[in-house]
Simulated assay, not measured.
Amino acid sequence: MSDRDDQLIGEFPFIPKQERAQQKRNALLESGRTLFISKGYEQTTAKEIASYAGVATGTFYRYFSDKRQLLMSLLEDKLDELLPPEPTWVSRDPETLLASLLQAHYQRLNELELHRVLPELMLKDPELAEFLREARSKIHARILFGLQQAKDKRLTWGDLDLNSVSWAILVVVENSQWIQDQNGSCTTDFHEIAKVICRMVFPPETLEQLRQLADD
């Protein structure tokens, strides 16, 4: 855990070691996740989280200082699943690969649903907002590194500003569901989104060559 994570989460009142105590703590985490999603973060109290988990309010405070610490624990555990995937450009048929990455990412988001809580919390929690900005910057840097590898192999458009393209890709990936909703579709066509992204990166003839290599 980084110093930044320590600052966000703080020191826990108690770290359980016995299985029964760990089960209670996990029940509180799942209870908090469910209530934050259904009621909203501000409308959820520690007492309600404890009651939903079937334990006393005092048990909540045995494991967590407050509901923010519980939410930060959830986010720490699931952060990798909340952040958008990093495309792999130096591969055969990057369009199909990217589509599968996007589909898996949004399936995880829909299972966790924690991303629904973040906009509400980020407005009131500058530390969390900064932490997520830093995490986003790291994803951007890895996308940029992958694009540079592809450009070094002469796979991309020659005149691309890779830094700008990397941010554009990140924005499209993060807003894919919203984009699809604006198109009036009830389901997300990940192949169409992957196609748009890959057209930003690769000339059509390069994509076709990569697809042919994948078929061989």
Results as ranks from 00 to 15, higher is better:
Tyr52Cys: 02
Met1His: 15
Lys124Val: 12
Leu121Ser: 07
Val201Ile: 09
Met200Cys: 06
Asp93Arg: 06
Glu130Pro: 10
Gln22Ser: 06
Thr57Arg: 13
Leu74Val: 00
Phe145Met: 14
His115Leu: 08
Trp167Gly: 02
Glu113Tyr: 04
Lys24Gln: 14
Asp189Tyr: 03
Gln7Pro: 07
Ala50Glu: 04
Thr188Cys: 09
Gly40Ile: 09
Phe14Cys: 08
Leu97Gly: 11
Lys67Gln: 02
Gly10Ile: 03
Ser164Glu: 12
Asp5Val: 12
Leu35His: 00
Ile37Lys: 00
Arg133Glu: 10
Ala194Asp: 00
Ile143Tyr: 08
Leu98Trp: 01
Gly10Arg: 03
Arg133Pro: 04
Ala99Tyr: 00
Val196Pro: 00
Leu101Met: 15
Pro84Phe: 04
Tyr106Glu: 11
Leu160Asn: 00
Glu30Leu: 12
Leu74Ile: 00
Lys138Cys: 12
His105Met: 05
Arg25Glu: 03
Gln209Cys: 12
Ile193Thr: 02
Glu130Gln: 13
Ile139Leu: 10
Gln107Ala: 09
Ser91Thr: 15
Lys124Trp: 02
Cys198Glu: 12
Glu134Cys: 13
Asp125Ser: 05
Gln69Ser: 06
Val90Phe: 05
Tyr61Asp: 01
Tyr41Asp: 00
Trp157Thr: 01
Leu112Glu: 03
Arg20Gly: 05
Ala56Gly: 12
Trp89Asn: 07
Glu192Ser: 14
Ile37Asn: 03
Asn175Gln: 09
Thr96Asp: 15
Asp161Cys: 09
Lys17Ala: 07
Leu102Trp: 09
Asp181Ile: 06
Arg4Lys: 15
Cys186Trp: 15
Gln182His: 12
Ser65Arg: 07
Leu118Ser: 06
Asn110Leu: 06
Lys67Tyr: 01
Trp167Leu: 13
Asp80Val: 10
Ser51Met: 09
Arg4Leu: 14
Ala194Val: 04
Arg133His: 10
Met1Pro: 14
Asp80Gln: 14
Leu128Gly: 03
Leu213Asp: 12
Gly40Asp: 09
Gln22Arg: 14
Leu155Trp: 05
Phe64Cys: 00
Gln148Lys: 15
Asp77Pro: 07
Ala214Val: 03
Tyr106Asn: 05
Asp80Leu: 12
Asp215Ser: 14
Glu76Val: 10
Val165Asn: 02
Thr96Ala: 14
Asp3Asn: 15
Asp77Arg: 15
Pro204Val: 04
Lys124Pro: 14
Thr206Phe: 08
Glu11Trp: 08
Lys47Tyr: 08
Leu162Asn: 01
Ser166Lys: 04
Pro16Asp: 11
Ser65Lys: 15
Glu76Ala: 08
Glu130Arg: 12
Leu71Glu: 01
Ser73Phe: 06
Glu192Met: 13
Glu208Phe: 05
Ile179Cys: 09
Phe64Glu: 02
Gly54His: 03
Ser91Phe: 09
Trp157Ser: 05
Leu79Met: 09
Tyr61Arg: 11
Asp152Ala: 14
Leu128Cys: 06
Ala129Trp: 13
Arg116Pro: 13
Arg116Thr: 11
Leu155His: 06
Ser38Gln: 13
Met200Phe: 08
